[in-house]
Simulated assay, not measured.
Amino acid sequence: MKTRLLTVAALLASTASAHAVGLDRSGQRIGILFEEGNRVELSFGYTDPTLEGTTQTNPAFGPLGGQSIDNVGDSFLIWNLGLKYDFNEKLSFALITDEPYGSDVFYPGNPAASLLGGTGATVDSFAVTALGRYKFNDNWSVHGGLRYQEVSAGVTLGGAAFGATNGYSSSFGSDGDVGYVIGAAYEIPAIALRVALTYNSSTTHQLPTSESGLPVPSLNTTSITEVDTPETLNLDFQTGIAANTLVFGNLRYARYSDTVVAPTGFTGLTGNPLTDLEDGYDFEIGIGRRFNEKWSGSVAIGFSTVGDDNFVSPLGPNNGSRHIAVGAKYDVNESFAISGGIRYTSLGDAVSSPGGNPVADFTGNDAISVGVKFAYKF
């Protein structure tokens, strides 16, 4: 059974997986390392989220309660480029670029006449991963390498719900660090079985920080904020269940509780960090089928875990998610293939709660993602 059905499966898993656990976007996929032969892959994913809410009716909010909140989720595009090369039958190499983490949230409205208007967050990242894989035999292999990663961000807090920090703004300049990747895989080629476990270390970033808008002038300063990205664990599996039919899946754990953003001025005033992220899991399972020499297709469903309660930061107003994705792959010839997919994500209901105080309800929201991948074998 040929394993190239996974080209479609991998696309579905990486089609701009918005609103997964924490700030995840690419899922740090390394599937190209297990493809047959030498190849280059280029993929793009676009996500259009809808995150609308309503401020709660509370006597303390006065006329600001019960107001509608227009869409706070900005659409975004991610891309991925990968190269895989076999040195011999046992040793292969892959170079992967991706955008592992991100956020694009902005609350419309006047900060002086709303509870959350003007609040927003952007997170940008870029990573280059160099991996090697060594096959001991047809069943066992190990893989590992280094990842260079850059991160930058910006946060604004607007609206009466933030009290003394209404109007606060911080800018976190870009900084890079090197982490490592290590893993192992077990395969039975005759039935297209593969189970691969991959650990991604955290990286530590010293972000140049500029803060403004705090009521204490001496706290509006420039400093360095140390931020750790989460360590993660990916478990990928697949197996043939019939001729030209494959079941595949992925389980991902991300330790976001270690990702704390605590700029000097804001923490000095409030005693709290800007972020409060929880560890979480993403899970996906699907089935792929090769229809003929040209066409393959797949469908997958999945979810990300919810938090301990529905209270979330205004900078991430959803709690868990469920999704369904479908995709197709067309082999133009023996060397070139095009894959495409679409994914619908139902975003979990949440209560936007700055400082732990419930302010706005976000319910019935979703996101649409589309993606395309071009693969060339040489």
Rank of each mutant, 00 (worst) to 15 (best):
L5Y: 13
V8Q: 06
A10C: 00
S17V: 01
G22W: 00
L23A: 14
G27P: 00
G27S: 13
Q28A: 15
I30L: 12
T57E: 14
P59R: 13
L64A: 11
V72E: 03
N80K: 14
N80Y: 07
Y85P: 00
E89V: 02
P100H: 07
V105I: 15
V105R: 12
F106L: 12
L115N: 04
L116R: 07
G117Q: 11
G118E: 03
T119N: 08
W140N: 06
G144C: 10
S152T: 09
A153R: 13
G154T: 09
T156Y: 11
A160V: 11
A161H: 06
A164E: 09
N166Y: 04
D175I: 04
D175E: 14
A184K: 12
I191C: 05
R194E: 03
L197K: 09
T198D: 15
Y199D: 11
S202A: 14
L214V: 10
S218R: 09
N220G: 04
S223V: 05
I224V: 15
I224H: 07
T229A: 12
P230V: 10
F237G: 13
V247K: 13
Y253N: 11
V261R: 08
A262G: 06
G265T: 12
T267E: 11
G268F: 07
G271K: 12
N272R: 14
P273I: 04
E278G: 07
E278P: 05
E284C: 04
E284L: 11
G286L: 07
R290V: 15
S304I: 03
T305C: 11
F311R: 14
G320K: 01
A328W: 02
D331F: 04
D331A: 12
N333I: 01
F336E: 00
A337Y: 01
G340W: 01
G341E: 02
S346W: 01
D349G: 03
G355N: 08
G355R: 05
P358N: 07
V359F: 13
T363F: 04
V370Y: 01
Y376P: 00
